[in-house]
Design a protein around this nucleic acid. Sequence first.
DNA 1: ACCCAGGGTCATA
DNA 2: TATGACCATGGG
Length: 217
Amino acid sequence: MQKGKILLALYQRLHDAYGPQSWWPADSPFEVMLGAILTQNTAWTNVEKAIHNLKQAEALNIHSILELPDDDLAQLIRPSGYFNIKTRRLKNFTRWFLEEGKFNRLNQLGDDELRLRLLSVNGVGPETADDILLYAFQRPVFVIDAYTRRLLIKLDLINGDEGYEQLRQFFEQALEPDVTLYQEYHALIVRHAKQACSGEKDCGHCLVEQPPALEIA
DNA sequence: ACCCAGGGTCATA
DNA sequence: TATGACCATGGG
């Protein structure tokens, strides 16, 4: 069986198990972008508190982010951790976002060009860029995170020494460029990791015991 | 008390 | 190219 079909079968199994996830939880694309930065190496429950603080202070907009003193912004996002670094990153990103002409202007760029520009922003790495591309700009870009890597290792689909870009190509070559599919797939992987591995170091064992390939082959 | 979470940058070799 | 240090809160 081709690895591509295994990835599709894996998606079917995850979808059957957990149902639609309808990510990303946010009221606007800009909120998705800030959330993508705030969630770096941070539990989402803590990010929710930070976003709640921003909304309550009516600071979840371009000009407030830029005009708030660093210390004030840091206090608002404090629950998300790394608040000093993330204050800088939020301001860096928002300044860039405004200079580039905001969403409508950036949205005219092609997928690859937009990805390169996002990666050029200090504080935006591959995963954050792809979160923004997939969930804010609705581009067919597959997001790779630590959960995805662990799951593929457990399923013996990869060695584990592959780079981010290599894993992204693995998914994007195996699956049709379907935004909704990519959004749901990544969300399901995170959902599965939380469900199956709370407290456990390794994850994906329940899918290994019953490999998704066997039922479809 | 320890470990990790919806990572990324920078300095060093 | 590839490690390591660093960032920092909250929940298990």
